[in-house]
Design a protein around this nucleic acid. Structure first.
Lengths: 179, 179
DNA sequence: ACTGACATGTAATTAGTTACATGATTGA
DNA sequence: TCAATCATGTAACTAATTACATGTCAGT
């Protein structure tokens, strides 16, 4: 059930990383998609190491700093990840509190509601801009001669984000028009 | 933080309901948006009753069955709900394991991946059909002379669902084309 | 002098899921 | 006879968030 282990493996399948790196990747680059706390990352890495899905590649020691433990994925880890990827899954539900707020919009004065919607819309526009930037960047890194370039997969995910943000913005506009 | 209490209040703001009704409404009508278990509903109702956000409207006893406790929202509950609705909130992230699977698609043989995508697409098409049905139904119930009809708010939410499912299906088609 | 980046981790709390328990009735 | 519906609730577990703890250096 818990997909956080697969999130970690997904990153490690691309390059060896430390727990700290993983956290940074998730929270910065993949920000709006996935997020983890250090409390999840470190214990999960330790657990996966015991199970042989990842292994310590090395420990870097930079002067005063705590040891930087870099992990790499093992063959078993790669297989577990592939297995999970092709395993059929349930449809997930849309969890967004703002939808619940809109469900209650009949209770609220229209002006107040419009303010709210404008604010959410603005935030989605921001995210859209970030995604567009990201796609541009990824496209430059893409190797078109390699049909198995992981960058292509990254682009697909970000493209979902772009579509999603556009949808959200359009929907917000419709809501405002209705009120 | 916990929005389940507001989900319950959102339903009770429209009509008095029992815990069982709430669960049914959530899991059937609002299925893909919100879901609750009985373990969440009953304790939360009890807690809200203590806090004066809801009150027992009456207890129905149908022969052999357990007593049916019907709750209604109080003025304080209504105000708490309105307050929450107009309170600014954080943007939520998109949590969908399938996106993570697509992020790993470079690891998998294209045929396998296409199978997966087709299946997910089929499920989203199903959900789209259900939403379209729902909107039709709601539109018939809508009272256009009443600018504060809660049905209008319901329609807005389902319309989001429709847009979302269409986006998902379109994105799946693009993915398949790429592979 | 203070904040933030680096880097690991633990502890405490809250949210959410799955399973269990009861028990008569209706329909397959 | 077996599963499903109605109706309440508890118990056990897993997942996720927030806060804490340590410690140095670089920049404001």
């Amino acid at each position: 059930m818990s997909s956080i282990r697969y999130a970690l493996l997904s990153l490690l399948a691309r390059e060896p990383l430390s727990g700290y790196d993983i956290k940074q990747h998730m929270n910065n680059r993949l920000g709006p998609f996935w997020k983890v706390g250090s409390n999840q990352v470190y214990p999960e890495l330790a657990k996966m190491e015991k199970e042989g899905l990842v292994k310590l590649q090395g420990v870097e020691q930079h002067a005063y700093r705590p040891a930087r433990k870099v992990y790499e994925i093992t063959e078993a880890g790669r297989e577990a990840l592939i297995q999970w990827t092709i395993e059929p899954g349930e449809l997930e539900r849309i969890r967004d509190d703002f939808l619940l707020k809109v469900y209650n919009s009949w209770l609220v004065e229209p002006e107040k509601m419009i303010e709210q919607i404008e604010e959410i819309k603005r935030q989605h526009e921001e995210r859209l801009a970030a995604y567009l930037e990201k796609v541009k960047e990824l496209t430059q890194m893409l190797d078109p001669s390699n049909s198995k370039d992981p960058i292509a997969s990254s682009i697909s995910v970000v493209e979902f984000g772009i579509k999603y943000e556009r949808l959200y913005i359009e929907w917000c506009d419709n809501l405002i028009k209705k009120l």
